[in-house]
Design a protein around this nucleic acid. Structure first.
Lengths: 227, 227
DNA sequence: CAGTGGTCTAGACCACTCG
DNA sequence: GAGTGGTCTAGACCACTGG
């Protein structure tokens, strides 16, 4: 390997070898460019990469320093459930439990930043892996913020349809552990109060809040990521 | 705003406006550079950013396409517990429960990819927020992979010391929901079997595996991130 | 094999911010 | 004010890969 990746790796190695210590100053781009025999832009590309992962901190005039025990950043990939299941070499299937227009509970209204008296599409879906319960999805969909008609919900999950239809969206995700309630006991076939891994996600576009979705995973589910 | 960020935002907006649809082809860098009146490198900078967040997919010769329902990526910031607590406007304190050299359980050996008969430093710590239990930390530390002597463990948490001492490390994190066991009931002051948000992290350097740490958060803890 | 993105260069100007 | 990183340019060559 050569080029900016080689420089990035070399700087990483020299930090790991404590040639430059946390809080310490790393030579400027110009100096590094000379010592590596490349253009400054190439050094800049390498250092920017390291700054994005949080290993170094850069400030104009102040230079580049090795980060001091700051927060490490990890990239979290949030797959569609079908892919999540298929990654385990299992067959994904799903079953719609609820499909109606309703006024959502107050907590959902607040999370979506919507008025109290709005009616949203309420969709509950049970996802299965090889026929066994995998996750229970509770979704509130703001149809007004979505262009075009709804798809055939028997053939495609709302989530995948949204990803194809609303390409750019922002939002938040919350991860938590919650005890199984009666509904979850029934559909996920677990004990009452069992510890469930839960994710809650709000998605927005500039046309307004699109959807609020809660996923309760069957006991034992683990979310894994690399640093 | 102008420059590559303006181009990035404009492309985003045109995707959101469905001028380019998921799966569809976006004009090449050369064409965009002409139409925006900038150098190709500037367009490249903008498009690379969009590719990193997963909004578009780029392949040589094939060009750039709007991503089709691919996995969304989120950046997960993993703060030190002290900062996590202080972000809630609470005072962090901690208390070491266990500190001894032991042979770790088999599961830990496997996760760290270590032989079975090694002795590691075992440290259990209870973290408090405003005096109330916040998280129970179970840690196995491979002293051989860490340079220099251990710090005064009454003054600084192992985690913060490691971040300052071992600047560059790779590893994995697992997030899960688990029922509280007897120890956790005792120290976190929760009900038996309560749903706890648990993270398990393995950290490695080129000197070998450094540490395995499990954090069991008190009931109600939620991890939040933006998309 | 030809078209696209990936990278590099040498130079320039700018923006920020520390001292 | 001056030094550092941030960005941009115009041009070039390369690497990958689809047709």
């Amino acid at each position: 390997m050569s080029g900016w990746e080689a420089i990035r790796d070399d700087v990483r190695a020299r930090i790991a070898a404590r040639e430059w210590v946390p809080g310490g100053l790393i030579p400027g781009e110009e100096a590094l460019a000379v010592s590596y025999g490349v253009a400054r832009a190439t050094v800049n590309r390498a250092m920017r990469e390291l700054a994005e992962t949080g290993l170094v901190e850069r400030r104009r005039k102040a230079g580049t320093r090795v980060a001091q025990g700051a927060a490490r950043r990890a990239i979290l990939s949030i797959p569609v459930i079908r892919e999540q299941v298929e990654a385990l070499d299992k067959v994904h299937s799903f079953q719609i439990l609820t499909l109606c227009e309703q006024t959502p509970p107050e907590a959902v209204c607040r999370a979506m930043a919507l008025g109290q008296d709005l009616r949203l599409l309420h969709i509950d879906t049970l996802h299965r892996a090889d026929g066994r319960p995998h996750a229970l999805e509770t979704r509130w969909l703001n149809v007004a913020a979505v262009p075009g008609p709804l798809p055939d919900l028997m053939r495609i999950t709302v989530n995948e349809w949204l990803l194809q239809t609303v390409p750019y969206a922002t939002g938040e995700i919350v991860f938590a552990a919650e005890p199984a309630d009666a509904d979850e006991v029934l559909h996920l076939e677990c004990a009452p109060g069992a510890a469930l891994f839960v994710t809650e996600r709000v998605t927005r576009t500039n046309a307004g809040p699109v959807t609020w979705v809660r996923l309760a995973h069957a006991p034992g589910w683990r979310m894994r990521t690399v640093l």
